[in-house]
Write a protein that binds this DNA or RNA. Sequence first.
DNA 1: GTCTATAATACGATAGAC
DNA 2: GTCTATCGTATTATAGAC
Lengths: 188, 188
Amino acid sequence: MSYGDSREKILSAATRLFQLQGYYGTGLNQIIKESGAPKGSLYYHFPGGKEQLAIEAVNEMKEYIRQKIADCMEGYADPAEGIQAFLKELSCQFSCTEDIEGLPVGLLAAETSLKSEPLREACHEAYKEWASVYEEKIVQAGCSEEHAKEASTVINAMIEGGILLSLTAKNSTPLLYISSCIPDLLKR
Amino acid sequence: MSYGDSREKILSAATRLFQLQGYYGTGLNQIIKESGAPKGSLYYHFPGGKEQLAIEAVNEMKEYIRQKIADCMEGYADPAEGIQAFLKELSCQFSCTEDIEGLPVGLLAAETSLKSEPLREACHEAYKEWASVYEEKIVQAGCSEEHAKEASTVINAMIEGGILLSLTAKNSTPLLYISSCIPDLLKR
DNA sequence: GTCTATAATACGATAGAC
DNA sequence: GTCTATCGTATTATAGAC
């Protein structure tokens, strides 16, 4: 395919690096080098430069995580069990240093929410999408829509915060503590 | 005082900027400019350069937030009410854009946990300190030490995640949702 | 679609004068 | 304690050839 996989390779390297190192911690040169894509092709595929690349990277993270959450929720009738399955998956990365994927969306969101409105909106959309997956499942389990809306936001916050704490502690304990309080959170 | 306030001014500007913009998003030049301190004095007061400055900034955040949590907890017999008072304070910054203080410790932690071991340790110490304030109060209210340890970690995660979500959403709704589920979290 | 070359700027850090 | 000057190296982005 003439419109080959260079674009794809650049975007996937950018997604990985932005998630691990953040927006300002990641240089375009590093992205090109790690992607293995030809150097001259970046601004051809991403004429909007670094900002466009970051926005598309956030969309990649959004879809990747949304799929993971959805897969976990499908496996159980009880939403709490589905969320705990997702937390278990997240906690695995802290067993081996090389497996660490970082803080999806959160790092970019914290760096750029006050500096780039389109990037902030992309991050906001990611959080809304993840919340809607939780929400739907919680409503299906018989909870009120109001409770489901609140709970899904709180779950998003706990998980992002839990990854952050696990990253800082270099172990999965915070994520496991969070997992154990999910059932109580949903009981109402 | 001959050992004047230049050091103090640099550190306080660095603390504010690192919290808002992160480690890689903040340049030494910007810190010097905003501090109003003489340009030549940075490496005199902080011979360890940017990394030392960031570590000391994290310690400033640690103490500032620890004091705020402690003040909130002192005002109430019930730990849940104290935490809710803290969350109310945090949520205020999202009423006015200029008041936003950013994500204390969390942004630096996410950027540098995999890149600088001393910086990671400083962030980890901050989280441990905050948790110990929650923990003590929860134990005093009659809970088991195990439950208090778990709950205080979860509270740390919820609050950091909640600030992140509020920053991204540009409103305090996530923090308020979190506040409303604190009592249930502590009931066990 | 991809290449090289380069512009323009910012970065962190150091040396040496005062 | 502070200043200026500067080194070396990043950065993002663009222009023009192929």
